[in-house]
Design a protein around this nucleic acid. Sequence first.
DNA 1: AATGAATGAGATTTCATTCAT
DNA 2: CATGAATGAAATCTCATTCAT
Lengths: 235, 235, 235, 235
Amino acid sequence: MTRREPVQKRSRERVAAILKAAQEQLAAGGVEALTTRSLASYSGIPVATIYRYFEDRDAIIAAYLERELESIDHAVEEALRGIERVTFRSMMHAVAHAHLRHHQAHPEGVGVWFGTRLNAAVHDSVRQLDARMASALHGATRGAGFIERGPHFGAGLIVRLWDRTFEHIFRIERSPAEQQAIVDEVVDMIATYMERYATPAGLDGISSDDFLKVLRRTGSPPGSRAQRPPPDPPR
Amino acid sequence: MTRREPVQKRSRERVAAILKAAQEQLAAGGVEALTTRSLASYSGIPVATIYRYFEDRDAIIAAYLERELESIDHAVEEALRGIERVTFRSMMHAVAHAHLRHHQAHPEGVGVWFGTRLNAAVHDSVRQLDARMASALHGATRGAGFIERGPHFGAGLIVRLWDRTFEHIFRIERSPAEQQAIVDEVVDMIATYMERYATPAGLDGISSDDFLKVLRRTGSPPGSRAQRPPPDPPR
Amino acid sequence: MTRREPVQKRSRERVAAILKAAQEQLAAGGVEALTTRSLASYSGIPVATIYRYFEDRDAIIAAYLERELESIDHAVEEALRGIERVTFRSMMHAVAHAHLRHHQAHPEGVGVWFGTRLNAAVHDSVRQLDARMASALHGATRGAGFIERGPHFGAGLIVRLWDRTFEHIFRIERSPAEQQAIVDEVVDMIATYMERYATPAGLDGISSDDFLKVLRRTGSPPGSRAQRPPPDPPR
Amino acid sequence: MTRREPVQKRSRERVAAILKAAQEQLAAGGVEALTTRSLASYSGIPVATIYRYFEDRDAIIAAYLERELESIDHAVEEALRGIERVTFRSMMHAVAHAHLRHHQAHPEGVGVWFGTRLNAAVHDSVRQLDARMASALHGATRGAGFIERGPHFGAGLIVRLWDRTFEHIFRIERSPAEQQAIVDEVVDMIATYMERYATPAGLDGISSDDFLKVLRRTGSPPGSRAQRPPPDPPR
DNA sequence: AATGAATGAGATTTCATTCAT
DNA sequence: CATGAATGAAATCTCATTCAT
């Protein structure tokens, strides 16, 4: 029990070191800059060892993104838990500020998350993450009865506008106060627009517990990809 | 003049052929797939010759993007010319539909423009294009007196939201009708929001000639990078 | 004795499992395909453990070949035991059919035995096996007085022609009947040729017991390489 | 015309240098020893340049074998041209001695030709060469009316026995005189055997011109594979 | 001016083998 | 004794770029 601990701990540390290095490389020059060699020399872990933890180069990027998303997911959930009555507007507000706080707390990741331009192979990963988020938003919105028949542009677009808003904010590097102001304005803009379609319940809101239940029922389970020792494929 | 014509003509044709090939490669597999070799073999122009027209690989990508933007610029200007009274709302509408038409007419380029994930070197290009567009929007808006003191999020953010809207629309491949509906909604959402800050003149509008004058006075001159014979050949 | 039994048994089983896996890999893709990793993953025995049984990769191949040869040796001896009067011709016939039966019974091994192209390190193994066989043939022939002064091409060449005959037969995959017919013809060809040099005793033959005695006296002892615990572990 | 000459000449020299190096590597340690790296460092030609001439590693081996065979083909044809009346026996004799002379003249190649153990990918090459030779032998034999209905083991097997005979001879390194004696004996053995099935014409023979005509009509055209600059495949 | 040829540098991935537990 | 983990060393192949003609 304790015997295996150190090994596991070391493993986890190494994976973390690799992902950290990946982040630096990505931030510095996008996917093209993330080479196995530079990863190795930067992290001090031999290439061959990296391949024990990740199937191939793309798996590293995927793992990095996955991990980042999980962290954001976490922050969002926490933020939602803190609201008394969840409405479409307050939900957007909470989500927005969760993102904001996360990025303000992990500024190193910002450049990567927004700036990294991905190759075709990893693109799907990102699409899936976006889709997951959109589907959660969509599901939660309808599921909680906030909105009955929405506008043509649905959750997917909102997620993307969202994403861009943060990208913009963080790449233009304003003061935290301004960042917050902008986020609030965009929330206001979108929420105002959406409220045209809101149901009475949507304006009144529900408890955060209820909302989280809906959210969980809807969202596809996170994780499940990446970062596992390659199963020594026969031939 | 006539003597050199064929050469010049050939040059232009070759550049066009290279950029066409670049588009295909980019669309097919992103920046990583755009190799000088594949470019050469696809376009039928030897690598060494390509280097006579472009400084390096990145310059090719930059040139491609530049050219694409010019084409959009063109469409936008034409659209604006068609409006009687230009207001913030009608301007956005015109611009949006210019984009829409452009992309609908050049579907091959869509994947590139939105989907291409760029490397660090080219990223700046895009940033600059975005900035140019934002600055034009900003300048025009204030210059024409549409808005006095705007919201915190300014032209830059709008441009980005914009961009994402189109990306979303075209990557999710809906019908032209739906595409239009969505664009209209986003225009409505943003315009409605902006009108909170509008001046009377902004709501009333100005003539398209006047607007275009302002626009031209403001916008940074397009072009200026890429596609020029390499500097003094060494030795 | 009984206490250690299970361990020894397990050892033997593991060695067998490794060699079995080796056979598959060899058959599938030649020496290049026989990697320690694939061996481990296929046999379910960890690489490190394989190294407890075999000094290195080449030792595995050597052991495989050794084992295969032993099996053939066995079959040959049995075949000879079944003959009343052993002459050069009947001996060749018996040996040939022993090979034939062996390969027909173990078709998986055929591709390996004949088809595997060996690397330099293992080549010697095969040379030695061939030499052993040739020396046995030679010794037995002269020892038993079948032949006095033979042709220039001696036992060595016959062994090789032999080998090729079987390779040909099995790689061209004919029906068992045809295989037998071809073998008989080659036996006939060689025997007829050799009988030019035969002594009266050679044409008359001797008892199989006597012949086997001669054979054993002559042949170099089989085995001796491979599959032994690695020498004194360093440190 | 002359302008391009030097280039072509240099190219040819380089290809030759590469194949020479390939020969050394193959002779020294079989296919496994023939690595692109060692090839480059041995021949002094950069890896990247080697790849201009050969599609990949296997193509190099294939080219080497092809070239060797062509050389033998040549020698055989010449030998046949020197015979007055071609019979099965004299043909075999001529062919055998052509091989003999070739190998005696190019002793460096012997180890490779016979000793090299090939990987699965190249194996086919060799099989094809063998098949080509066998088909020529078969075609010529029947075509020239030497033999009507042959024994079960046909041309294919003879070719292989052949091959092995030479391998044996050259690997056991005897004196040229002994080598010749052995070859003669094997020719005698096979020819004697085949003459059982010979037609009168086969025993009488035909003119070498006629025979060569038959041979050419039968054999598949040599060459045609390997060693050409890879056609810059578009992605 | 145009280009076939050349190439240094590096990319990704795998191997055989050895430790440390 | 057994073995998961580690790794130096190499393998194959490609790329962007530059010469030499």
